[in-house]
Design a protein around this nucleic acid. Structure first.
Length: 508
RNA sequence: GCGGUAGUAGCUCAGUUGGUAGAGCAUCAGCUUCCCAAGCUGAGGGUCGUGGGUCCGAAUCCCAUUUACCGCUCCA
């Protein structure tokens, strides 16, 4: 385990040192759990996107793409359940480290006081019999009145503060009431905080803060697909079953966001929602489970790095769900989710929008709300999976060491490095000619500084699969050497064959 | 969010009981070099995470804050 922590740290610093990933806003001390992709990181990330997009959209005639906006109508998040799901004021006791809902804490306490009053009332009723006037009693008996006043004073203020989101006052009320933690028995509380996983902002006039102007940064890309279901189906003339694929940013205000790219507050998803006839969803669920695993394995990452984790407790919207987990240096963690979401989302939007979201089946002459099978993969997590799987330190036969990123060739940020053995005698000019042959189709990297060995090591550290070296002999026989990143073997080939050779190397 | 640990150059670190910052590698310029890092010469780069405080004087002591890591907690 300790070894893996070390490895994880090495990967993080390698990612920074070689221009893959930087902490966000670093010169201002950084911003927690936000990261920027550097010159080589963005290439790798784009390659992952392209590889996924092609496998989904290009390889399936019945899957089409979409790029919906990050801002969406606030009612969408009511319909999806995101607004209500996570909207409670919370408070922690510092001694017991237990977390409570602040409103529940206060209400429970008020209830306890009310219970005390009730006890007195019961006693009094026994004493006074039929003539007992409870309302009168509550306002006249000194002890009961004290309790009652306490409740009355706090109750109105409490609900007003809750309604106004005045969390400071909620905290003040907890302190004034002298509420103690049931576990630790102390009053050592943190501030009251509103936990809402959605980031919000206002649309329109900045001064207007009324609820109607609030818009959220989407916490998932899926809803953009659902609300466009009919637009896509009709405009692209899709028939069930069919899918809509989308790559895009999503935002979640995680309470604890940590572990490098694994849990970020701003992240990117690659999602595909597959619309099917009701009753067929589970067979499609199985289909996509297999298909997605196949995609992962096609990257050449060993199968033992992956596993399925079937959900036993299903979310409110699903009738089957599994995760594809990856063996990160921090352990097996979720990389992709495959969920059978039933008709939950489309039905909810149908209800909230008042618009029909049905598919009309020409064969049976009936309309119905399709069921949905979702595949949702974290782009940043895939990036991290590829990077951490690729990182290795090797001891070579001559006793020296090298750090290599064994990134699958098709995803590598730099495909080919062009290296003149020395930087004179016309070698750089020849190298540029070769670069011109390749740079239209492959991300190339030209380098003439330093000894050839050092340049090879630098390319290894970036994960460049092939280095083409130009030497004096090249000027005579028009042959270059191609050096393989993983085997470090070299072969000598004619310049005229380079195009074909490189194409062949990247074709699988 | 709570608790613990840490933050000195791009990286890895040194900095003695407080006395105005150093090494190696890396980077850049030039030389040298005909295939697997660490050849030669020179140069640039740090208000020691940030903000306050104590002191004649703070990288060093105190407080706050921020970021990262570890543990707990949370994860519709």
């Amino acid at each position: 385990m300790a070894n893996n922590e070390e490895l994880f740290k090495k990967i993080i610093s390698h990612a920074k040192e070689y221009g893959f990933v930087f902490p966000s806003s670093e010169i201002y001390d950084g911003l927690s759990a936000v990261y920027d992709y550097g010159p080589f990181g963005v290439e790798l990330k784009n390659n992952i996107k392209e590889y996924w997009w092609k496998s989904m959209v290009y390889f399936h005639e019945n899957i089409v793409g979409l790029d919906s906006a990050i801002f969406m109508h606030p009612a969408i998040w009511k319909a999806s359940g995101h607004v209500d799901a996570f909207n409670d004021p919370m408070i922690d006791n510092k001694d017991s480290k237990k977390r409570y809902r602040a409103d529940v804490l206060v209400e429970d306490h008020l209830q306890k006081i009310e219970d005390k009053i009730q006890k007195e009332v019961v006693k009094a009723r026994q004493r006074f019999g039929e003539t007992f006037d409870e309302a009168m009693y509550r306002t006249t008996n000194p002890r009961v009145k004290e309790y009652q006043d306490k409740i009355d004073a706090v109750k109105t203020r409490f609900y007003a503060s809750l309604g106004n989101n005045d969390l400071t006052d909620v905290k003040a009320i907890i302190e004034e009431l002298g509420i103690v933690c049931p576990v630790s028995g102390t009053k050592n509380w943190t501030e009251v905080r509103q936990f809402n996983l959605m980031f919000s902002t206002q649309m329109g006039s900045v001064n207007e803060t009324s609820d109607t102007n609030v818009v959220y940064l989407r916490p998932e890309t899926a809803q953009g697909i659902f609300v466009n279901f009919l637009n896509v189906q009709k405009s692209a003339r899709m028939k069930l079953p069919f899918g809509i694929a989308q790559i895009g940013k999503a935002f979640r205000n995680e309470i604890v966001a940590r572990q490098f790219l694994f849990r970020m507050r701003e992240f990117e998803q690659m999602e595909m929602q597959y619309f099917v006839k009701p009753g067929e969803e589970l067979q499609w669920f199985e289909y996509w489970k297999k298909a997605r695993m196949k995609w992962h394995l096609s990257l050449g990452i060993p199968a033992e790095k992956y596993r399925f984790h079937d959900h036993e407790k299903l979310a409110h919207y699903a009738n089957a769900a599994t995760d594809i987990e990856f063996d990160f240096p921090i352990g097996f963690k979720e990389l992709e989710g495959i969920h059978s979401r039933t008709d939950f989302d489309l039905s909810a939007h149908q209800q909230f929008s008042g618009k029909k979201l049905q598919y009309y089946d020409q064969e049976t002459n009936e309309g119905f709300v399709p069921y949905v099978v979702e595949t949702s993969i974290g782009l940043d997590r895939t990036f991290l999976a590829v990077l951490s799987n690729a990182y290795r330190e090797e001891k070579l036969d001559d006793g020296s060491e090298r750090v290599v990123l064994g990134i699958p060739a098709i995803l590598a940020p730099i495909k080919v490095a062009i290296l003149p053995l020395i930087k004179k005698d016309g070698l750089p000019e020849k190298a540029r000619e070769i670069m011109d042959l390749l740079k239209m189709n492959y991300r190339c990297y030209y380098e003439e500084k330093d000894t050839i060995g050092r340049r090879y090591r630098r390319m290894d550290a970036l994960g460049t699969p092939y280095c083409i070296t130009i030497d004096h002999q090249t000027l005579e026989d028009d042959m270059v050497t191609i050096r393989d990143r993983d085997t470090m073997l070299q072969e000598r080939v004619p310049v005229s064959k380079i195009g074909d050779l490189v194409r062949e190397k990247f074709s699988h």
